Simulated assay, not measured.
Amino acid sequence: MGLKLVVNNDDKKEKTFPTCRHNCELFDSVTGQCGINDDINPDDPFVAARCGEMIYKDPSDDSVYVPPHQENSYTKFTLIEDEFEWEYEDESIFYELKGDKFNRVDSTYPLQPDYPSNRDDAVWYVSPDKEWGCWIINKSKQRFMAISNNEAKPGWTKNVYKSPYPLHNHKSSLTLASRMAWYVDEDGYGQYVILANGNVSMISSLKPENWRG
């Protein structure tokens, strides 16, 4: 039992979903790993679907469904759930990013981020208990107002909900914590994402196309 990805189209030709191993230029065939993220499953289409850094080897191949590379492109997918709980609800889908020299002694997290967001629409947020922080990117028209856990309207997974700021700790490692962002979509639903060079590189929970809040 598990999940599968489907996409609505009128083309009767069977289509497959891209994976890091077979469709991405950033995949290193020698090491068998992604050139950006550590500890991923290169054969899992869900990993490829969440990635904003993927470079397709052959985008002209129409047997592979290539999602639009936009920040909210994950809304193009439909999720068919065989079970109510599913593994991608777990925060463990966040991976360590390679290539950064990080000095824990000089870290200013959580009061200040260790890395810039490289975005004009991101603001740094610190939790009320000063234990953790993240960037906030709000694409909704909702005002920034106080809200509690009991007032937050649930979304499509337990860690997605209507709130202009996060109500739970992302619990990411220190090297990754300053890249975490709470991304609020146009309908007001927020979830954690990873920022890389100003782009949303990885999201926590794909939004089902047929989901209605």
Rank of each mutant, 00 (worst) to 15 (best):
W156D: 10
V160S: 03
K139T: 05
A152G: 11
K141M: 03
P164L: 02
L174W: 07
N150H: 10
H170L: 10
M145N: 11
N138A: 01
S172D: 06
K158V: 11
K158F: 06
W156L: 11
H168L: 14
S148P: 01
P154Y: 13
L174C: 09
L167A: 07
K171S: 13
K153S: 09
A152V: 12
L176N: 13
K162T: 00
K141A: 06
R143Y: 01
L176R: 10
S163K: 02
G155Q: 05
Y161A: 04
K162P: 02
N150F: 02
T157W: 09
P166V: 11
K162I: 01
S178P: 14
A152P: 09
N169F: 05
K153N: 09
S140R: 07
K153Q: 13
G155Y: 10
S172Q: 11
E151L: 05
E151V: 03
S148Q: 03
V160H: 03
I147V: 15
K141S: 12
Y161R: 07
S172C: 07
S140K: 01
A146C: 08
K162H: 07
H168K: 12
W156A: 08
S148M: 01
K141V: 06
T157K: 10
S140Y: 06
L174I: 14
K141L: 04
S148I: 01
L176W: 04
K162Y: 00
K139M: 12
H170C: 09
N138S: 13
Y161Q: 05
M145L: 04
N159T: 11
L176D: 12
K139H: 14
N149G: 00
L174K: 04
T175P: 02
H168E: 09
H168F: 09
S163R: 03
V160R: 01
K141Y: 05
G155N: 10
Q142V: 01
A177W: 04
E151Q: 15
Y161K: 03
N169R: 07
K171C: 11
P164Q: 03
F144M: 14
S173P: 00
S178C: 14
I147G: 12
L176P: 10
P166S: 04
E151K: 09
N150G: 01
Y165C: 04
A146L: 03
S163F: 04
A177Y: 02
S163E: 05
L167G: 02
L174M: 13
P154R: 14
